[in-house]
């Protein structure tokens, strides 16, 4: 018996999406194989990692990750520049968490000002994220889009409850959008269909399957992603073909494993390494399930994941 490499025949392809303008614009997606199987197809773009920053100081971030930005995080522009210039960020993801009604309840106008200031300072592409409050996000992201037209940003998250306003604003501004649904293949497909029915180009959508942290439901995200990828590539379903984003920082940096001191749980080992490793391992798991874009927090976790991404192609 001679060994013959068992190759899969893929009829579909992940859509390629470009974000940003100028020499540092990035492309994600575009592969026509399951994750990182270049022996049977093309993987033109590596997974990109964006650094998450916020419009307000990250007081709710656990100390391990808060301390990594302690000198810059009071000012989103400084914070963004630090990530870009000192840490070599490929992309910045600005989360407008201060707009959440339970937080500072900042106005859409204030939020838009922050976005414009950050965008003016950096030359890497920008992801603009709301606070995950469906109604407020619609207003905030609209204001942000209106103020940033032509900059080819990635804006999100558009969800079933608020996609109409966000999609319309993004379309007017020429932006790309993140479409997020609740961990369900069919809901994800349905949202993509609703969005394209508004006349939005499917090649400008990035799918957020909804992430979950290692140990707290990651297997659900993992399998939903694998199923979306297989639908796109093996069944050539164009409504499942956008690239995948995983916004993991907010899930990882709230679980006990990234917070509890070693003195409370000696059997879990040192907190700092444990917390960074938790974010790294979460990202690696989802990378294997097909992530094209990761939004992460800790510089060491990001550096490790980027090294792995380089070694996967």
């Amino acid at each position: 018996m001679a060994f013959v490499v068992p190759k899969e025949n893929y009829s579909g392809k992940v859509l390629e999406v470009e974000i940003g303008t100028g020499p540092k614009a990035v492309k994600i997606g575009g592969e026509n194989t399951l994750p990182y199987l270049a022996f049977e197809g093309q993987v033109p773009n590596k997974t990109v990692v964006a650094y998450e920053i916020q419009d307000v100081p990250p007081e709710d971030w656990p100390s391990t990750v808060q301390s990594a930005y302690k000198d810059v995080s009071a000012d989103p522009v400084k914070w963004a520049l630090y990530c870009q210039n000192e840490l070599g960020a490929q992309m910045i993801a600005l989360r407008l968490i201060g707009t959440h009604p339970d937080r500072q309840d900042r106005s859409p106008e204030e939020a838009a000002k922050t976005v414009v200031a950050v965008l003016a300072a950096i030359d890497v592409p920008l992801i603009i994220l709301g606070s995950n409050h469906a109604e407020k996000d619609a207003q905030v992201l609209k204001a942000a889009c209106d103020a940033t037209a032509g900059k080819n940003c990635l804006v999100g998250k558009a969800q079933e409850a608020n996609y109409k306003t966000i999609v319309a604003s993004a379309m007017a501004a020429g932006h790309k959008i993140i479409a997020m649904s609740d961990l369900d293949v069919n809901l994800s497909k349905q949202l993509n269909i609703l969005i394209t029915q508004m006349g939005f180009d499917k090649g400008k959508i990035v799918t957020d399957p909804m992430s979950s942290a290692l140990g707290y439901g990651i297997e659900y995200t993992y399998s939903v992603m694998e199923r979306i990828r297989q639908a796109a590539l093996l069944q050539n379903d164009p409504t499942m073909s956008p690239p995948l984003v995983n916004d993991i920082g907010m899930y990882v940096w709230k679980v006990k494993e990234t917070i509890a001191p070693e003195s409370d749980l000696p059997e879990w080992g040192g907190l700092e390494e444990r917390a960074i490793g938790w974010e790294t391992t979460t990202a690696m798991g989802l990378l294997m399930a097909g992530s094209n874009l990761l939004i992460m927090r800790h510089p060491k976790a990001i550096a490790t994941v980027r090294k792995m991404v380089d070694e996967l192609v």
């Binding site: 140990g215 040192g270 390494e273 798991g285």
Partner: peptide, 20 residues
């Protein structure tokens, strides 16, 4: 096999090997 490290790997293994 530091504890901080194997904790995460054990969790990943446990998660991926659960019944879907």
């Amino acid at each position: 096999a530091s504890k901080w490290k194997t904790l995460a790997l054990m969790a990943l293994r446990q998660n991926l090997y659960t019944d879907p």
